[in-house]
Amino acid sequence: MTLTSRHRGLFALLSGLLLLAFLSNIAWGQVAIPLGDVLQTIFGQTPIQSTWSYIILEFRIPKALTAILVGMGLSTCGLLMQTLFRNPLAGPYVLGLSSGSSLGVALVLLGAGLLPTGLYTLLTGPYGLVTASCLGSLGVMAIVLVLSRKLRDSSGLLIVGLMFGSFTAAAVSVLTYFSSAEQLQRFTFWSMGNLGNLTYTQIGILTVCFAVGLLLTLQSIKALDGLLLGENYAASLGIALGKSRLRIIWATALLCGSITAFVGPIAFIGLAVPHLAKLLFQTSKHGILLAATLLIGAIIMLGCDTVAQMPGFDFTLPINAITSLVGAPVVIGLIIRKKALL
């Protein structure tokens, strides 16, 4: 891919910003750690205070890595969905994929009591939650795809997404009647969104899911470019539509499902980040857009998490509140200014 000098400059800038966001995310928090000590710890040396080393290695680095995976994964989802539906307002959260995942997780966390014991232990393990969550988003993705062929306008599809949200909320409130207080508490914490609860094993699982999703996305780059002209043109360019569509659906469901399973539903990142990439890079080539979306997604998610942990304060805000505060105005702005492009 030939890059213009503007694109090269932007990529260099974003890479620098990502490094900065990563380090500051690790340095700031309830305990502020000097940057020098952060770097020392990362490169395997012991900082002045040994508790810092513990905080950094056991808490902040896993959280920062999770933020990067979540930001990259959800933004990629958004990019894939916007092109697949040729709807600039598509995203995993607004179209209800996160709701689908929530339903899957709710069935496991709340409704597991209704299951036989063997199945219960299987489904409440780390893989069970991921599987249920992925199946949830896959189901919604399939339904949205079918409906998108009947509903040609963007707003119709968004309303369907809203309905999925309501449906999930209703199903969850029904499930609460069958669950214990402990189960309910677990689900409520999960649904608020939290980047900081993952063990290295869980990050490993998330990384594998992310890698597979990204690989499927990379294989779809040419098909995505072709789809910019609509399905008939794409087919006339030799793109196997059925296969490509299926690959994109799997990628989206895997990315959104695995991320939602581990950190809860995260709002608006998937919708907003691809548009920031399109505005900055002024291109529709998916090779460039994907790289830009990955970088910006990671930066924004790290930034949101840094704000959420409120340097100098004793408490942490829910991550979902921050991403909504950032993302919702972006979406409204896009709608009002009619600047939304594929």
Binding site: M1, I221, L228, G230, Y233
Partner: peptide
């Protein structure tokens, strides 16, 4: 068919015609 609104320039749109001949990245 109406072409959906995107950032594609005239050159890039015409270049999509080369899809049957380009590699996996569309180079």
């Amino acid at each position: 068919d109406k072409i959906p609104k995107s950032n594609l320039t005239v050159y890039e749109l015409i270049a999509l015609g080369r899809h049957p001949y380009t590699n996996w990245l569309g180079q």
